[in-house]
Structure formats: structure tokens, C-alpha cells
Design a protein around this nucleic acid. Structure first.
Lengths: 116, 116
DNA sequence: AATCTTGTGCTACTTTTACAGCACAATGCT
DNA sequence: AGCATTGTGCTGTAAAAGTAGCACAAGATT
């Protein structure tokens, strides 16, 4: 496990966003309750709620007040090619002992040069 | 241009870290002064200095007090394979209209599953 | 209908982070 | 030697983010 425990709303947002866009959390699947997520990551409820709000704004999840939160139907999973390239990058980096944070920084750097 | 202007010490850190590890900033090459970086990104000097400190702790840069800051000799650039995979991922994502932030979230997600 | 679940929305407090601005020490340059 | 450059370290202040705890509304469950 390389993953550090998320400790801010943005990090919790990114965690679920990644799980959804990578297909680890499928269409219609249920997320933990806000309270549960807050407990899981040892943050305040307001912090977890903020993350969920942001995911909902982006249409990744749907909340129905007493029925919990679920992955929004359709349009959630990223194209397979992207996921496969991400997997390939992860493998290459780990094999070369490049940290996740460094890998992300490199990705940001090359993104700039290819940008439209 | 997808790149947003960094607005915190961590983001400035990541910006230079990415430039160095991707080879955009070569061995021995000089970085802007702390004051200049602060101006460039409209942050306080202390914020820019903090980012430089963090890079120095990680051995990515070398500072000599009145001679400025330079990329540390050796061991800066990541293996070519990593850079190429990063480039491939960037292209795939942009082609599929997946944002940088989403791409990073996906990378984090798959990283967890491959981790040692 | 009564009750439990769940997301939301407060309030007041604490912690973290950034800010502005300056002074200092080390070093390069002339 | 004298001056400019540059990283560092301070002060006090302000803004942003998180915390704890609770109350409420919408809806599910029994």
C-alpha cells in the first residue's frame, strides 16, 4: 500500500473520483455514507460532505437523501485506453522506484508540453 | 494551456519537481531566484522559499547563498521509460478529453492496485 | 404512523497556510 | 574593499480549511 490516507476534502474527492473513473467503483454502486467516510479517514463530517458535494457537482455521483450516495449512471468510467496507459505508467514508475508524487509531477510537466 | 498557476508552496514544489524529473530543467541548470519565483506566481517570498527548501531536502536542487539555485548534479532525471509512458498517458487522456486532474486521480487509483 | 437512516446546514473554535515586509549572512562581482 | 545579489529567518497579521457537535428535512424501513 502506497496510498496515504486522505486528510482533506480535496484528497477524498480525488480518491473517489479515481475509483469511479478507473472503474473500481461501478455504475450505480453505493458509496459509504458521509458519516462512514468521515470515520474511515478520521476527518470531520463537514469535510467528507464537502468532497461528496464536489463529486456531485461534477455529475459523478447521485445523492438521494435517505438512500445514500451512488455512482451516477453512465459516463463515469474513463476510456479503456486511458486506464491502460495509466496502469502502464504506474508499473514503469514502480519498477524504476519513482514515487507516485514524482510520477504525478512528471505527468503535469509533460502535459504542459502536449497541451492544446 | 491546461496548467493553472501554482498558488501554494506544494504546487510550486511540484512544478519544479516535474520540470526536473522530466528533464525540462537539466543538470546544473539555474532556477529563478526565490524573489523572481514569488513574483512570477504572485506569492509571498516565504512561500517560494518553502518550496525550494523542500526540493533541496529531497536532493533535487542545490542552493549556494549568493549564487542562486541550481539543479543538483546527477540523479535528477527520471528513467526515459517513465517519461515516455507519462507522455503516452497525457496524449491518450487529452485525446479522450479526460482532464489532467481526472487523469491523476485515475493514476492514483491504479497505483494502489499494483503496489508492492 | 413511528422510527431510523442519511445528506445537509448551521455555529463557534482551532489549526494550518499564506501574506507583507524587513533584516541579516554568505557570497559573487567590480 | 565595497556593493549588489540571493537564500534565509524573523515578526505580526490575515485568510483558508478543518474540527466538533448538533439540529433539521427528506425519505426509507418496519
Amino acid at each position: 500500500m502506497t496510498g496515504t490516507t486522505p486528510s482533506s476534502a480535496d484528497e477524498i474527492d480525488a480518491l473517489f473520483r479515481g475509483a469511479i473513473r478507473s472503474g473500481q467503483l461501478g455504475d450505480g454502486e453505493r458509496l459509504p455514507t458521509v458519516r462512514q467516510t468521515a470515520r474511515d479517514f478520521s476527518v470531520a463530517q463537514a469535510t467528507a460532505a464537502k468532497a461528496y458535494k464536489s463529486l456531485e457537482r461534477d455529475g459523478l455521483i447521485v445523492t438521494r437523501t435517505a438512500a445514500g450516495t451512488r455512482v451516477a449512471p453512465g459516463a463515469s468510467r474513463a476510456p479503456q485506453a486511458v486506464i491502460e496507459h495509466a496502469r502502464a505508467l504506474a508499473e514503469a514508475s514502480e519498477g524504476a522506484l519513482v514515487t507516485l508524487e514524482d510520477t504525478i509531477a512528471i505527468l503535469r510537466a509533460v502535459w504542459r508540453t502536449e497541451a492544446t
